[in-house]
Amino acid sequence: MPLQTQLVGQCTSPRHHAVDTRWTMAYAAGLQDENPRLRDTTQASLCVHPLFPVCLEWPSVLDSRALPGHDGLSDDELARGVHATHDLHVIKPIVPGQAYQTTARVVDLQAGHQGARVCLQLDTYDEAGDLVTRTWQTNVSRGVTIEGPAATPIAQAPAWPDIHLTQQAVDARREIPIAVSAGLGNIYTETARIYNPIHSDRAFALAAGLPDIILHGTASLALSVTALSRELLDGAVDQVTRLGGRFTSMVVMPQTLTLHITAQGSDWALFELRNDVQAPVIKDGFMVWSQASATAII
């Protein structure tokens, strides 16, 4: 069935989360991120992996599929949905031991050449009611059309950083290999608490027309951020203010990915992640850290 334009403007009910060190450390360990800032509890405060907010956002992403206008899709149509783009803004650090709540608002719905493009604004707030993170996420329902009167977007996703066009940009081409184990899909499923059987159940993945179990897009992005933080920030992950990219290819496991740092400034980097046949897995990747010219735009 088509997606209905009445979907635009609707928001999910808040999802409440208790974030503890067990969860945040498991997330980092599942990525084989050995940064002591993420797992050494003898420190005064424990940092959280920059992409951990996706763990809080996933239940709200699922809730958005039950909103009026989206709830008519069949199981087959839902299974054809793909995560296309991700743009995470970190306003305040997530702190283990605190409670958070997350909502998903549909801000735009457009017809694309592959299917309906749904743009979500995912907001996470702390106990004081302060906005902690905001993610602009585009999902594509492949082969699904749109029906209803034209709907005006209720919010405009911020432009992606064009810092590679500034005078700061330097050619910083470096390549970093990233090993992906055969079981990473299952591990990430449990540590991120993002349950989708195409990432953990081979029979389900094959029945869905996939070549095998595939890795979560956010896991590929998290692995990239781990490598960038180690290479460029000496592990100071709490400095990251914005990150994202476009997901372009699936990752079958095991294999070795290659992170290509294509340009770098004093507080930003651009990258591309490629698979073992050099096809892009993430294109137009970026990471921005404190005091950057392209800081979080909310």
Rank of each mutant, 00 (worst) to 15 (best):
M287D: 07
L88I: 02
C11T: 10
S229I: 05
L67F: 05
L88Q: 05
D71P: 03
R80N: 14
L243S: 08
G209M: 09
G97K: 02
T152G: 10
V288N: 14
M287G: 10
I282G: 10
H199G: 06
I154S: 09
P153E: 13
D234M: 03
H83W: 06
T248D: 14
D212S: 00
D284L: 11
L120T: 02
L232E: 09
D171C: 10
Q10W: 04
S141D: 13
S290Q: 03
L210N: 01
Q255M: 01
E57F: 13
R39K: 06
A292R: 06
T5E: 08
G185S: 01
D171S: 09
I163Q: 10
Q121I: 12
K283M: 12
L73T: 00
I176L: 01
S64M: 09
S13M: 07
W23P: 04
A227E: 09
F271I: 01
T42P: 12
A205P: 09
I214P: 04
P153V: 05
W289Y: 01
T5C: 11
D276E: 06
I213F: 11
D76G: 12
D234P: 00
I146G: 00
D201M: 10
W58G: 02
A79N: 15
L120Q: 05
G244Q: 14
R65P: 15
L215D: 08
H17T: 01
A150M: 07
G244P: 15
P254E: 07
W160M: 05
L259Y: 15
A294L: 14
F204S: 11
V252M: 09
P14F: 03
H70Q: 09
F271V: 02
E127S: 08
S74I: 06
T191Y: 05
Q121V: 12
D87A: 00
Q43W: 15
R173N: 13
G30N: 08
L38Y: 04
W160R: 12
R274C: 09
D87I: 04
I298H: 08
Q121Y: 15
P68R: 00
R39G: 04
T42V: 06
D126Y: 13
H86P: 11
V118C: 13
S64H: 07
A18P: 06
S224N: 09
R37A: 03
